[in-house]
Simulated assay, not measured.
Amino acid sequence: MPVLAADARGDAYPPTFPEAAERIAEAVGFLKAKGYRQIAIVSHSMGSRMSYGYLAGKPDDAVKSWASLGIPLDDYTAVKLPILDLFGENDLPQVLANAGKRHASLVARESRQVTVAHADHFFSGHEAEMVAAVAEFLNATLK
């Protein structure tokens, strides 16, 4: 994914989102060339914001689901895939503030929202719970 200077603020990243979408498309193409037809995207925070740009467009039909961790957006309706909206109970204020709107916008049948108890934005000390939630979702959506 595109990376700006270490001191760059989050609001400096949106101009890089088209490049991020191109990179994701290239990665999906690479996996398809290797024979993979059940692809999921797992992303966190800014990576989730970048992934949204790809998934809200016309993602490759080999992409079957998306695990979005710690995203501060408030609307998933442009993404038609199953989505796992995963965040920590003590996540960033903007992630927590938009949780209800994100939940209401989940449209695919297998979509779900999961909160990891006591976890922060990085799931520090709660990595096992985060991995378990993602694995359960992927096992349910990649068949």
Rank of each mutant, 00 (worst) to 15 (best):
A78S: 12
A117I: 00
G125T: 14
R9G: 11
D85T: 05
Y54T: 12
R9F: 13
G125N: 01
R9A: 15
I71P: 00
G125C: 10
S43R: 15
A21T: 09
D60Y: 08
K101A: 13
Q113S: 14
Y36A: 03
A67E: 01
N98V: 05
E110V: 03
A108D: 09
G29F: 00
A21F: 00
E89K: 01
G29A: 02
I71G: 00
K34S: 05
I83P: 01
A40N: 02
M50W: 02
S51D: 01
A128E: 04
N139V: 08
S68C: 12
V107S: 15
S111A: 07
V114L: 13
G100S: 10
P93N: 09
H44A: 14
L92S: 14
Y52I: 09
E89S: 10
F17H: 07
V79M: 04
V28T: 04
H118N: 14
R112L: 01
A21G: 04
A132L: 12
V131P: 09
R49Y: 02
A97E: 15
A21V: 05
K58F: 03
S124V: 03
F123D: 04
A135E: 13
I71W: 01
A20K: 00
A6V: 08
K34L: 12
A128R: 07
Q94A: 09
